[in-house]
Design a protein around this nucleic acid. Structure first.
Lengths: 258, 258
DNA sequence: CGCCAACTTGATAACATTCAATGTAGGTGG
DNA sequence: CCACCTACATTGAATGTTATCAAGTTGGCG
């Protein structure tokens, strides 16, 4: 598993045990829920977090585990998924540095979370975080805003899964990856794929074969090109947008990865 | 369009103009965000709400409209949907009495909202509601909890759209309707279908013909029976649960309509 | 160098869609 | 009150997109 471009943006969190004041030094703080706190209050976060390191393929938690913690990714990437009894799987999201997961105002998690690459997360025990939310309403507002945005992305994904063709699905996925890449590098045409074809298939409601064939079809049309199966270029971004069903005048507004 | 069983549970809101104190008399208050307020604070809600009546098929708002209001349904039912440029449509949820909609921490709505039956909603201007949230954190917590539950339902729907067969999709839909019916009447085996086959198809990522064929297949297996196309009985609830992919021991925990 | 996992490509099959016809219920007007 | 009309729903036949089954190919790693 290669690491994604998202892993290179910011200095990695220290991996040598529990640092003294991880939140103060946290490179992703401003990007996440934690950014709602003023610098002088950040010490309050330290009191309740601990860091956790995950190898690729390692589980953070399982669907139906008691939902006792919330997490922020400080480094690496994670996939979320749900399964049917016979093994069919639906990936509901790929998460990267600064993303937030584990929100569940219920007993148990609604999905499993597994590390895609080597990953560092900050763990917040739910009860202690809730106590903090009572004290810092800005943090709760931020959480609500995150949840609301995730909901909008989930609805985009429903449209994709329910109504788009295989090639449209793949183009939509590449569009999202391109948008994300654009946050870091200027043109968003160089795309890393840290997940396997199987993961993409389970995210798009397809099989690996169909994902592969759709890639080949886009290659044949000279819309994309590969250097390796994990590393590609978008040659014609407007063709991708067109296939993804994004109107030209809405390029700016299009949504995040989940 | 017939009205659903949900429309009969509680006395209808008065339809003769703007009542003096709608919130105090509101039959669904305790079920919704508004229930977070203590009775003496409910007057604060009155100050900012107004009611709106919709005929079947009437739009509450359109995708990409400026997101200026949030709504609570006090009577009737609403469908939410997104569309592609060529007319393909994905319904992301059916909403009923006491349901909440319009949450969007962004400029514009992510979906369109259209009345399924004759519907009454309470409208809360976004800016004034946010001011109220600052004052009443319990209300914000409730909103966060609602958003979190909707997110879990959205993930269930992704699993349905991406990985279930037509018959499994329909069984899952009937299971949800049954759960909802169970909140009101004991056995949850009598199901009203206030939406058309087209609406169901667009909710399940199918065509009307496939929905109809799947209904017929369930009829042939004597799992369901119809009195009219809008009114049915579940004869074998455990067969529905099985097809929906709900494990017997998780019957209690299964989720809401969206 | 060779093995293994991941990916790609090809041939066939299946499930859902599309196109088409028929059936049914509710509403309107003669 | 019945006939007719329109919507919606059901059923049938054919087509097509994607899944399944089956080889190959590639690339990374011991």
């Amino acid at each position: 598993m290669t690491s994604s471009q998202f892993d290179r943006l910011l200095p990695a969190a220290p991996r040598d045990g529990q640092p003294e004041n991880p939140c103060a030094a946290c490179a992703v703080r401003d990007l996440s829920v934690c950014g709602a706190l003023r610098p002088e209050d950040v010490a309050r976060l330290n009191a309740i977090v601990n860091q956790k390191f995950l190898e690729p393929g390692e589980m953070l938690f399982l669907e139906a585990d008691p939902a006792e913690s919330l997490y922020v990714i400080t480094d690496g990437s994670i996939k979320l998924y749900k399964m049917l009894a016979d093994g069919r799987r639906q990936i509901t999201g790929f998460l990267f540095r600064s993303d937030f997961l584990g929100l569940a105002f219920r007993e148990r998690y609604a999905y499993s979370a597994e590390a895609l690459s080597a990953t560092t997360v900050c763990r917040f025990p739910k009860d202690r975080l809730e106590a903090l939310l009572d004290e810092f309403p800005e943090m709760e507002r931020r959480l609500l805003s995150i949840a609301s945005n995730e909901l909008a992305s989930a609805q985009d994904q429903m449209l994709l899964l329910g109504r788009k063709t295989a090639e449209e699905k793949l183009a939509s996925f590449l569009w999202i990856l391109s948008r994300r890449a654009m946050l870091k590098e200027e043109d968003g045409r160089t795309i890393d794929l840290p997940m396997t074809r199987m993961d993409m298939a389970d995210y798009l409601g397809l099989t690996i074969e169909t994902v592969s064939r759709s890639f080949s079809s886009l290659k044949r049309k000279e819309i994309i090109s590969f250097t390796t199966p994990q590393h590609m270029q978008i040659l014609d971004l407007s063709a991708i947008a067109e296939l993804a069903g994004i109107e030209e005048d809405a390029w700016e507004a299009s949504t995040a990865l989940r």
